[in-house]
Design a protein around this nucleic acid. Sequence first.
DNA 1: TTGAATGCAAAAAATTTGCATATTG
DNA 2: CAATATGCAAATTTTTTGCATTCAA
Lengths: 139, 139
Amino acid sequence: MSDLGARLRARGKRLTSQRERVLAAVGRLGHGTPDEIADAVGSDGGGALPVSTVYRSLDALSELGLVGHTHVDHRAPSYHLADHATHVHVVCRGCGWVGEVPLSAADELVARIDDRLGFAADAGHAAVHGLCRTCREDP
Amino acid sequence: MSDLGARLRARGKRLTSQRERVLAAVGRLGHGTPDEIADAVGSDGGGALPVSTVYRSLDALSELGLVGHTHVDHRAPSYHLADHATHVHVVCRGCGWVGEVPLSAADELVARIDDRLGFAADAGHAAVHGLCRTCREDP
DNA sequence: TTGAATGCAAAAAATTTGCATATTG
DNA sequence: CAATATGCAAATTTTTTGCATTCAA
C-alpha cells in the first residue's frame, strides 16, 4: 500500500513534507476538522502550517482517496484516514452524542444501493442522524 | 400535522409569519441551503427576510422536527421538510451526482443500530457517499 | 404585560484565492 | 529548467451575535 509519492505522481502531483505531515496528523487524530488538523500538524515538531496549506493538502489527499470526511455536526467536516472508516457514525440530533456501529451493519443497505443504482456506497463515510436512547424518551 | 402554532407553543416558542414563510419556502424548494431558502422566501411576495432570521427559523423548525438537513457536498447544509425525507440520498464522491433509494433499503441498518445502541436512526436524513456507476469504473 | 422573536448591522468563523517565492521531479 | 506547491495576507463566504424594537400570547 502505498507509496504516497508514487500515488501523487501518478496524478501529476508532488510529494511534499507538508502533505506527509498532514496525512500523519490525520492518522494520529483519528478524526479532526481542518482546524484541529492544523493544530496537530503544528505539534509534530516541524513548525506550524498555514491553514490554507492544510486545506490544499486535504484536498490532494482526498483526491487520492487516502482521507475522507463526514459531517458530524452542522458545521464541521471531520476528516479521517480512509482506512479508518470501519464503522458507521450515528449522531444524536438532540444532544449531539456520537456513537458508532460496525460497518457490517450497513451491508444490506450497501447491497441494495448497488442493486438499484450500481452505486458503490461507502457506508464508512456516512453519518446517520437520529435520537439517542435518552433523547428519544425525553420530550 | 399539525398545528404549527401548537407545536411551537408546546415548546414555549411562538408562531410568527417569518417561521411560516420559511417553512413554506422549504416545502416549495424541496431542498435548499439557508441562502437559497432566504431567496425563496424573498419571492413569496411578502418581502425579504434577513438571513439571520432564516437561520433562526430553521433552528426553531428543526427543533420541532419539521425540517431536517443533509450535507450533500462539503460546504452546504441542505434543508428539507422532515416528511420529505422518504429516501436515502447517495452522493458520488467523483462527480457529485446525487441519487436516492427508498428508505426501506435502510431498514436493516436502522434495526441494527437500534439493537446495539437503542438509537432511533433516521435514515432519511443520511447521505451516503461513494462512487456512482460511471466513476467506479473510470480511473 | 412580558418574554420571545425580529431586523439590522457588526463580529466571528470557515474557506478560498492571488501572487511572489521556494521545491520537486 | 518547468511545473507544482507553499506561505502569507487579503478577500469571500457562511453563520452567529448584540441590542433596541416589535409582536404573539
